[in-house]
Design a binder for these strands. Sequence first.
RNA 1: GCCUCGGUGGCGGAAUUGGUAGACGCGCUGGAUUCAAAAUCCAGUUCUGGCAACAGAGUGUGGGUUCGAUUCCCACCCGAGGUACCA
Length: 936
Amino acid sequence: MKTYDFNRIDHKWQKHWAENQTFKAENNSDKPKYYVLDMFPYPSGAGLHVGHPLGYIASDIYARYKRHQGYNVLHPMGYDSFGLPAEQYAILTGQHPAVTTEQNIKRYREQMDKIGFSFDWSREVRTSDPKFYKWTQWIFLQLFKSWYNKDTDKAEPIAELIKIFEKEGNSNINAACSADTPNFTAAEWQAMTPQQKDTILHKYRLTYLAEAEVNWCPALGTVLANDEVVNGVSERGGHPVERKKMRQWMMRITAYAERLLNDLDTIDWPSSLKEIQRNWIGKSVGALINFKVAGSDQSFDVFTTRADTLYGATFMVMAPEHELVDEITTNEQREKVQAYKAQAARKTERERMTEVKNKTGVFTGAYAVHPLTGDKIPIWISDYVLAGYGTGAIMAVPSGDQRDYEFARQFDIPIINIFEGNDISEKANEDKNAVLTNSGFLNGLPAKKAIPKMIAELEKRGAGKAEVNYRLRDAVFARQRYWGEPVPIYYKEGVAMPIPEKYLPLELPEVENYLPKDGKPPLGNAKNWAWDEQNETVVSNDLIDQKTVFPIELNTMPGWAGSSWYFNRYMDPHNDTEPFSQDAINYWQKVDLYLGGSEHATGHLLYSRFWQKFLYDINKVPEPEYSVKLINQGMILGYSAFAYRIKGTNTFVSLGLKDQYETVPVHVDVNMVDDYDYLDIEKFKAWRPDLANAEFILEDGKYKVGREVEKMSKSKFNVVNPDDIIEQYGADTLRMYEMFLGPIEIAKPWNTAGLKGVHNFLRKFWSLFHNNGVFDVSLEQPTEQELRILHKTIKKVTEDIENFSFNTAVSQFMIAVNELGKLKTNKQQILSPLVILLAPFAPHLAEELWEEMGHDQSIAFEPYPKYEARYIKESTKTYPIMVNGKMRHKIDLPANMDKESIEKAVLADEKVQSILTDKPLKKVIVVPGKIVNLVV
RNA sequence: GCCUCGGUGGCGGAAUUGGUAGACGCGCUGGAUUCAAAAUCCAGUUCUGGCAACAGAGUGUGGGUUCGAUUCCCACCCGAGGUACCA
C-alpha cells in the first residue's frame, strides 16, 4: 500500500465496529455515565444531504471523546417515523406507509453507517413501532387519568378528584381547568348522568375533549397546531388554513405554563432558544377587573396589565365572538352588531392582520359601570380584541394605549388624559414611568406604585383581583390522519373510555384507502375498528351493538407525540412491561448533551419538557428537566446556482452580460458547476430534453452562473449528497470538513472549496506514520521541541472540544501536523497520543494507524492523553513593546522575570531608547507575561 | 413595532478576565519539481505608499471610558431568527 487508502480503511473499520458491537452501552458500569443525544430524524424519501449529519458528527465527536475519558456513554439513534409525507405518498400510490417508511429507514441507515457514527444501534427506537407506541399510548392514558392540582402544583389522579366531587363538589378545588367549568355541589354531582359527569371531568383532565377553535386545513383534511401554521398557510405544503370549531382531543399544557417558564432558569440552553420559549409562554402579570352592565345583573371581566389606568377608561371593547354580546346588544343596534359579527367571522386571520391600520367596530348600545366612579361607559365590539386571549374583553384607555387611542379617534370617543404633562393630540402615552393625574387616589404615582394600590382597592370593593395571564394555549392533540399513533379511546354511550392498559398497544388497523371519507378521518375506512368490552379485544365494526361493542376513536396522535418522550425509551428500549424500568432511568437519569435544530423551539422542545414534568409528577422519572445542556446546530445551506434565460427564448446569457437582456433565472443543478462558478454546458444540455437545443451567450468563452444561498432542497437543485463526498474523499474528511466549516451553532452555506485542505491534512497525518508508503514509526526519545508541540496540541484540542469549538480544534490538528511534518517526526511517543486525540474526529484513520502500531484492541476506549504543564510553559517570553497602545517593538525576556526587572530591561534596550529620544516618557505599564506599554 | 443574536481581509472563519487583530483553511501571486500538466513542496498574501527598512489607516457608523477597546458603555445603520392588534 502506497497511499492513504481511505475507502478501504472506512469499510474495514465500519465492519469491525458493527461485528464487535464496539459501541454497545450497558445499563450498569463502574464508570460514570454520560448520555449524548441527537434529535432523531424523520426518514424522508429524499435521503440524507450533507446538512443532516452536521449535528450527528458533532455529537459523535463528543461521545467518542467522553468514551476516551472513561465514561460509560449512551449514544443512541432512532427514527421519528410517523408523519405526513409517507401518508401522502400512500394516498398517491396505495403503497402502505409502513413499507415506504421501512425503505427510507434502510437508506438512512446505510448513509449514516458510511459516516462512521458510534451509535449503539441495539437501542434503536422507531415511533411507528407498536412496541414503542404502546408506551406513547400508555402516557396518553396517564394524562387522561390525571388533573392538575394548583395547591400541590402537580398532576394527581382523577379518581381522587372524583372522590372529592362526591364529598364536597368542586368549590374547594384549585385546579388548572377549562375556563367554562361550572360550580357544583356534591349533591349536584351525584345527580348527574354519566355523560354529564364525563363532560365535567374533561374540563379537568390533562388530555381532554373540547369544542375548540382549531386551524383546519381543507387541502390536507386535518387540523394543525399553531406551530404547524406559518403565515396563515400550512408549514407542510403551503395550503390555506382556516379557523373552525371542532370537538378535539387537547393537551392541557397551560397547566404547566409557570413551571415550564421557571425551569428555563435551571437549564443550560442557548439564550435565544429560551427567549423563544419565554415569549411563546407569554406570561403577563396584571389584574382582572369586573364591570357590571348598566341596567342589568350581568357583569364581565377584563384583563389588564395596567390596572392603574382605570380612571382613563372611556369605553369597553369586546371581541365579536364574546358570549355576552348578543345578550347586551340593544334592539336599535342589533342589526349593525349582527352584520359586524358575520363580517368578522368571514375574515381569515390573514385579512385581520393586513387590516391592522384601520380600526373597525360597532357600538352595542349597552353601557358598563365604572367600578370606582360609577360612570356609564359605552361597550363596543371590535376585532382588534381577540377572543382567545385574556377574557376576550378589554377596558379601553385611549390616553395610555395606542390601539385604544386609534379606536377612540376613529369613532370620536372622548379621551381622558391621565398623565401629568402629557399631550394627547398625537398619540397615547405608553411610558410606564409617566406620573398619573385625574386618577383620584393614584394621582402623583407612576405605574409601578399605582398598580398594586389599585388592585388592593379593587379587591376591597370586590371588583377585581391580581391575575396572571399566559399566551400559551392548550395544544390540539388529534390529527385526521392514518399514519400516526391510534388514540386508545372508545366511546360508550357518548362517554370517552380508555382502552385497558393491559391490552395496549392498540395497533393501527389496515385500511384500503388512506383518504378521509364522508368527513371521517382515514381510520373510518377500517373494517375492524370496534372495541369488544367483554372480551377486551378489537373486533369488526359490524359487531357494534352499543352494549358490549363500541366504536374506537378515529383520530390519531400528532407528530410530536412520540418525540415527547423517546429520549427516555433509549435507556431501556426493549422493555415490554413498562416504558422504561426504574433501574434504567435511575442509572441514566437524563440527557447530558442534546444536539438539534432551533426550529423545534416551540414544538418538540416545549412539548417534551411538558411530558417530562408530567412523568416527574407521577414519579416515573427522577428529573423535572430531561436535558440540562442543549446545543443548536445551524443548518447547512445550499449554494444554489442560476442560469439566465432570455425571456421567451431558449438562449441563456452568462452572469456578467445578463443585465443587457430581460432574463428569467433558472435553477441549475450545482453538480454541473465547478468551483469557479463555470457551467458545464454539455452536462447542462443533457440534463433535460428541453435544454438540448439551448443556445448560450458566453463571456470569455465560458458560461458563468449566478449564486445564491438558500435552504438545501431537491427542488432548488442545490443538494449535495454525503455519499458522493465520502466516495471521493473518505468519511473522515467529510466529518472533519463539516466541523471545520464554522461554529456548529450558526447557519452556513455548503461550499466544497475547503474540502481539499482538510483532506490534505489527513494525508499528511497518515504520512507521518509512513515512509514511502511503508509503515515506519520509531521508538526514539522525542526532543523537547516535539514534546512541546504534542502537549500544546493536547491542551488546545481538549479545551476546544469542551467548548464545542470543533472548528478551531481541527485548526490545532493542522498546525501540529505542519510543525511535526517539518521536523519529519515519526516517533511513537509523539504520534501515539496524537492518534488518540484525533480518534473522535477521524475514527477510521485513527483505528487503522492504531492497529498498524501493533494494538489489537479498538482505539475507542484508550485513555485520553493528558498534557504536562512543563512542556507548555515557555522559558522565554517575547514582550510586545507598545507606545501609547500601539505595537512598536518586541523584546525577548526570561519568562519568570518580575515587574521591576522587566521595566529595567526594556528601558535599557537600544531600540526603546531611540524611540524615546524625541518624546519624554510619562509612565511605564508592565503586565508580567503579557505586555509592556510606554506612555509618552 | 417589540424580543434575541450577529456585523472582522477576496471567501469560511480565529482572537482567556480589555493587552502583538486577521490563527487555521480556501483562493490568489511567485518559486521548486516536471518535456508538460495534475499532484506535492517552499515563500508571500488586510489596505495605501515604498525596491526595502518602514510609515499611515484599519474589526458596520459616530461618540465615550481607558496607558491601551474586535472586547466595556451610549446613540445610530445594516443583517438573520423569533413574534405580533396579547390589553
